[in-house]
Amino acid sequence: MDVEELRQRLQFEPDALPLSSQSLKVCKIDFDKVDSAFDWLEQADNHHLICLSDPLYPPLLQQIYDPPSMLFVKGQVNGLLAPSIAIVGSRNMSLHGADTAANLARDLSSYGFSITSGMAAGIDGAAHKAVVANNGVTLAVLGCGVDVVYPKRHKSLYDDIQQDGCIISEFWPKVSPVAGHFPKRNRVVSGLSLGTVVIEAARKSGSLITARLAMEQNREVFAVPGSTIAGYHQGCHDLIKNGAKLVEDAADIIEELGCLSEYHLVQLHHRHHIQASEMSNLPFPSQLASLLASVGYETTTVDAVVEHSGKPIDLVLVELLELELQGWVAVVPGGYVRLKRS
Rank of each mutant, 00 (worst) to 15 (best):
H96D: 13
V137W: 01
K28P: 05
Y65Q: 14
K25R: 15
D30E: 08
I87P: 06
I85V: 11
T116S: 13
F31C: 10
I123H: 02
L19D: 10
S90C: 09
D66C: 08
N78M: 13
V26D: 04
I85S: 06
K155A: 14
L49H: 08
Q163A: 09
P18T: 09
Y65P: 00
A86T: 05
L71Q: 00
A133N: 14
T100Y: 04
G145N: 04
A121H: 10
L142H: 07
D160A: 13
D159G: 00
T138C: 14
F38M: 13
C27F: 11
K129E: 14
I50F: 08
A133G: 04
S109H: 06
F31W: 15
N46C: 12
H128A: 06
S69P: 03
V26A: 06
G125L: 04
V73D: 00
L139S: 03
Y111W: 07
V141K: 01
P18V: 09
D30V: 01
T138W: 01
G136Q: 11
A98I: 11
I29G: 02
P67A: 13
S156P: 06
A120W: 03
N46Q: 14
V77N: 05
S109I: 09
P83D: 07
D32P: 02
H48Q: 11
A102V: 11
L71H: 02
L142F: 03
I64Q: 02
R91L: 06
Q43T: 08
I115P: 01
T138L: 01
F31D: 12
P18N: 04
Q43E: 12
V34I: 14
A37N: 08
D147M: 03
N103P: 06
K33G: 08
I50T: 02
W40L: 13
V88R: 11
S114H: 01
K28N: 15
N103A: 13
A101G: 11
L81A: 13
H48L: 09
A44I: 00
S23L: 12
T100Q: 11
K74R: 12
D32V: 12
D160Y: 01
Y111K: 08
H96V: 10
V149H: 01
D147R: 02
A121E: 12
V137P: 06
V132K: 00
N103G: 08
A140K: 03
A105Q: 02
L81Y: 11
F31A: 09
F113G: 08
L60Q: 01
L104K: 04
S94N: 09
N135F: 05
D99H: 15
K155V: 06
L139G: 06
H48C: 08
V149I: 08
